[in-house]
Structure formats: structure tokens, C-alpha cells
């Protein structure tokens, strides 16, 4: 039954990815990336990962699209005034033919090697795969008894915040660092503005 949903989702995922690769307009590419993330989130939901699907839908289709659009609005090719940007300002150049051929060769080679590697992998959903035998069952069992007297129903949260709490602390620190770095790069202050303006005069 689920196949009737999965197969269209996979086909759409594939079509969106190819479209992003060949499309020249950057606005359209960004919107297709949002669609791609949302389709990916739908598939994750079917694959029993509601937490991840949640995050992917909010981050990939929401925040990341907004950030890319904000960047696009800051980087049009022509230097016309605000409000008069036309669609053609966001056309990318087609890569030269030599580059297309060489990158296609690299991609096909890498893909072939990866597919050769999957031949030894456990089949989809098999219960005796290495990932299913250890340590996942112990997490599910232990979180019933160790997390307070009645357990914590969402095992993902239990593993995230308790069993792997140190890891999550590190991830939070990474987000903190990235936020500070973006502030340092983009924060407006007078001194750096003048320097920036001076440099752009030199180069242009």
C-alpha cells in the first residue's frame, strides 16, 4: 500500500534534483531546493523518522529557502537600483562543455563505486542488519526503565538529550559558533563599512 505513495515521492525527488541541476535561473533553483527538502521530509516520515521529517520540513523548506532568497536579493549581477531587478539578473552561465563532460565522468565514476559498495549492504528493513542488532534495541528497552520510573516514550529525545547528551552539547556549540560567525561577517559597523567600500572601489 505504502508503495503507491513512496514511488511518486521518489520520482518527484529525482525529477526535482535533476531540474535543479539543469535550470539556469537561480530563483527557480532555490524554490526547487525547498520542494526537494519537503519531498525528502515526506519520505523520512514514511521511513519512521517523524522527528527528522519535522526538522527537515522546517529547516530545509522554510528557513534555508528564506536565507537563500535573502542572499539572492543581495547579489544580483547588474547594479541597477533596488526594486528594478529583472529575472535575467539571476541567470547563471552554462558551464563550459569541457567542464560538464569531466564532471559527468567524475560523478558517474563515484556513483558506480558507491553502487558497487551497496551490493554488500544489508537489504532494506532487514532485522539482522548490524545497525538493528546493536545498540538500538538496548536504547529502546533501557529508556523504559532508566528514564524515570515510567520511561520516556520518545526514544529519540531520550538518546538525544540523555544518552548522547555530551554530543548534543557539542552540536549546540557548533550552532552557537556559526551564529556568531555570521554576525561577525555581516554585522554592520561604520569602520568595516568604510574599509569594505574602499576595497570595492579598488577592485571594480
Amino acid at each position: 500500500m505504502m508503495e503507491f505513495i513512496v514511488i511518486p515521492i521518489l520520482a518527484l525527488l529525482f525529477a526535482t534534483a535533476i531540474t535543479v541541476a539543469v535550470i539556469r535561473n537561480l530563483w527557480a533553483a532555490v524554490m526547487f531546493t525547498g520542494i526537494y527538502s519537503f519531498l525528502g521530509a515526506s519520505w523520512m516520515l514514511i521511513l519512521d523518522a517523524p522527528d527528522v521529517a519535522f526538522t527537515e520540513a522546517a529547516v530545509g523548506a522554510g528557513v534555508s529557502t528564506i536565507l537563500m532568497l535573502a542572499t539572492l536579493s543581495l547579489v544580483p549581477r547588474s547594479s541597477r537600483k533596488r526594486g528594478s531587478i529583472s529575472n535575467s539578473d539571476f541567470e547563471t552561465k552554462d558551464p563550459p562543455r569541457r567542464r560538464v563532460i569531466s564532471s559527468l565522468l567524475v560523478v558517474i565514476g563515484t556513483g558506480a563505486m558507491l553502487i558497487y559498495g551497496t551490493l554488500d549492504m544489508p537489504l532494506f528493513g532487514s532485522a539482522d542488519a548490524a545497525i538493528q542488532t546493536y545498540p538500538a534495541p538496548s536504547f529502546i528497552e533501557k529508556s523504559q526503565t532508566e528514564m524515570g520510573e515510567h520511561g520516556l516514550p520518545n526514544v529519540v529525545t531520550a538518546v538525544l538529550a540523555s544518552y548522547r547528551g555530551y554530543d548534543t552539547l557539542g552540536e549546540t556549540a557548533v550552532i552557537f559558533t556559526a551564529g556568531i560567525a555570521v554576525l561577525l561577517i555581516l554585522r554592520k559597523n561604520k569602520a568595516s563599512d568604510e574599509i569594505g567600500a574602499g576595497q570595492s572601489e579598488v577592485t571594480s
Partner: peptide, 16 residues
């Protein structure tokens, strides 16, 4: 703790 969710998701939803 009880359903799907947590700090990461909630943070992004709240910010959005």
C-alpha cells in the same frame, strides 16, 4: 519527551 519534537525542531518553528 512524549511525542515527536524537541529543542531543535521547536527552535526552528518558533524562529520561523
Amino acid at each position: 519527551d512524549f511525542g515527536p519534537g524537541g529543542g531543535f525542531q521547536a527552535g526552528v518553528i518558533f524562529a520561523s
